[in-house]
Simulated scan of single mutants.
Amino acid sequence: MTNKKNVTIQMVADRAGVSKSTVSRVISDYPDISDKTKKKVYQVMRDLNYYPSAIARSLANKKSKNVGLVLPADDDFFENPFFRDSLRAIAKTASSRGYDTLIAYNGDNETLSVERLVKANKVDGVIMMRSIISDPTIEYLRERKFPFVLIGKSLDYKDVYSVDTNNFEAAKKITEKLVKKGCKKIAFIGGNKESVVTIDRFNGYLECIKDNNLIFDDTLIQKNEFRKCDGYLSIKRILEKNPDLDGLVVTDAIIFSGVLEYIEKMGKGNKNLNLFNIVIGTFGTDNTYNSKLNIVNVDVDYMELGRASCDKIINILEGKEVNEIDIIDYILK
């Protein structure tokens, strides 16, 4: 018997009387290879005690046992509690179910990164870690009928599998909390205006402002990116026009860290700005920040968002029934 360790794909090709590429295509189960040729190649593989590598087997089975994730281009990515915690939960859940996670960095084009994963058969399904309106990546995956789960929700399609938090309700409740604390002039700082989570949280904030007949104008609103520097600049711009601000809703922990830096820098010794009197409502932050600040926090379970999204994509891949939308609870602290 031929020693398995010494058998190569070229030896299989020579014994079967076909090319090396034909053997590879048989292993990958290409439809343009005849059944007769496939039977002959498989028989030679058995005779030579040859077994393709794990990669080749995955190609033959058309299963990679990988779940794809695409990291955003944000400079502050690894400081963001949402991405950090949900990513850890996804990797842990995938491993427990016999899958690995394959991460691609999107640079400036998330869709191209997803295309690379899909076209190269590197992943069986994709988890999208944030949602935007008119998302070209969703368009691409839908056209390809490729399995994916969205953390967030799609405003363009109702049939997208997703895992989300009720961001509209959470933002409305946290703004109401500021109103109950006596705030009359409440500003809003959010991330990218194309981001669905920013849209939902802004609409929740806005409904509370209108319900309570509070002051509202464009000088109280800032929407930039999910970066610390944008939080710093946003609160600076708001306070330049509204020095009497007494309330603030911030939609993201990284943005909040920039707001905090500005308040701590400018609030010390500045008698004209009572910055430490501003009540701040924010999402996913740690209440152990500066004790001088009055902070209300929406505790979003990012670990559960990651776990649930990973379980959902694997259940889809394994043909199990899943809900179209799963809503993860939050806690207002």
Results as ranks from 00 to 15, higher is better:
residue 2 T to D: 08
residue 132 I to F: 06
residue 40 K to C: 04
residue 49 N to W: 00
residue 10 Q to A: 13
residue 181 K to P: 06
residue 209 I to F: 11
residue 79 E to V: 06
residue 221 I to V: 14
residue 215 I to K: 03
residue 49 N to Y: 01
residue 63 K to W: 10
residue 214 L to K: 05
residue 149 V to W: 01
residue 1 M to P: 14
residue 152 G to M: 03
residue 254 I to R: 04
residue 195 S to E: 13
residue 212 N to D: 01
residue 88 R to F: 12
residue 225 E to L: 14
residue 233 L to I: 07
residue 300 V to Q: 14
residue 269 G to A: 08
residue 161 Y to G: 04
residue 112 L to T: 02
residue 79 E to W: 06
residue 89 A to Q: 03
residue 112 L to P: 00
residue 109 N to H: 05
residue 241 K to V: 03
residue 159 D to M: 10
residue 244 D to K: 10
residue 61 N to D: 15
residue 235 I to E: 14
residue 48 L to R: 04
residue 92 K to E: 13
residue 121 N to D: 12
residue 120 A to V: 07
residue 106 N to W: 01
residue 57 R to V: 11
residue 109 N to C: 09
residue 187 A to F: 02
residue 270 N to M: 08
residue 2 T to H: 09
residue 229 C to V: 09
residue 38 K to I: 11
residue 36 K to F: 01
residue 312 K to A: 04
residue 123 V to P: 00
residue 324 E to Y: 13
residue 124 D to L: 12
residue 208 C to D: 02
residue 154 S to G: 10
residue 279 V to N: 10
residue 160 V to R: 05
residue 34 S to M: 09
residue 228 K to H: 05
residue 30 Y to G: 00
residue 332 L to G: 14
residue 203 N to Q: 14
residue 316 I to A: 02
residue 218 D to I: 06
residue 53 S to C: 09
residue 12 V to F: 11
residue 143 E to S: 00
residue 61 N to V: 10
residue 276 F to Y: 15
residue 90 I to G: 03
residue 283 F to V: 05
residue 317 L to P: 12
residue 333 K to T: 15
residue 198 T to D: 06
residue 34 S to G: 00
residue 132 I to H: 07
residue 11 M to L: 15
residue 295 I to G: 05
residue 136 P to C: 05
residue 62 K to P: 03
residue 106 N to R: 01
residue 132 I to E: 05
residue 125 G to S: 12
residue 212 N to R: 12
residue 110 E to R: 02
residue 293 L to N: 15
residue 3 N to A: 09
residue 295 I to L: 15
residue 61 N to Y: 12
residue 136 P to K: 01
residue 164 D to Y: 04
residue 178 L to C: 15
residue 17 G to V: 15
residue 242 N to Y: 07
residue 277 N to M: 04
residue 290 N to L: 12
residue 94 A to N: 03
residue 72 P to L: 11
residue 324 E to G: 09
residue 58 S to C: 06
residue 298 V to H: 12
residue 196 V to H: 02
residue 304 E to A: 10
residue 137 T to K: 03
residue 185 K to L: 14
residue 118 V to E: 02
residue 112 L to C: 02
residue 332 L to T: 12
residue 78 F to E: 12
residue 333 K to N: 12
residue 165 T to L: 13
residue 55 I to E: 10
residue 266 M to Q: 14
residue 9 I to F: 01
residue 8 T to L: 09
residue 264 E to K: 13
residue 14 D to S: 14
residue 199 I to N: 00
residue 160 V to Y: 06
residue 297 N to F: 08
residue 301 D to E: 10
residue 83 F to S: 08
residue 218 D to H: 09
residue 241 K to N: 11
residue 155 L to I: 01
residue 286 D to L: 09
residue 37 T to D: 00
residue 46 R to L: 04
residue 221 I to H: 08
residue 311 D to H: 05
residue 104 A to M: 08
residue 214 L to G: 13
residue 304 E to G: 11
residue 110 E to Y: 00
residue 35 D to C: 02
residue 39 K to C: 06
residue 319 G to A: 13
residue 147 P to W: 01
residue 10 Q to H: 12
residue 149 V to K: 07
residue 50 Y to H: 00
residue 133 I to S: 00
residue 239 L to V: 14
residue 252 D to P: 06
residue 188 F to W: 02
residue 161 Y to N: 13
residue 130 R to C: 11
residue 271 K to G: 07
residue 239 L to Q: 07
residue 201 R to H: 09
residue 52 P to N: 14
residue 207 E to V: 08
residue 58 S to A: 15
residue 179 V to Q: 07
residue 317 L to S: 13
residue 115 E to T: 02
residue 96 S to L: 08
residue 263 I to S: 05
residue 211 D to S: 13
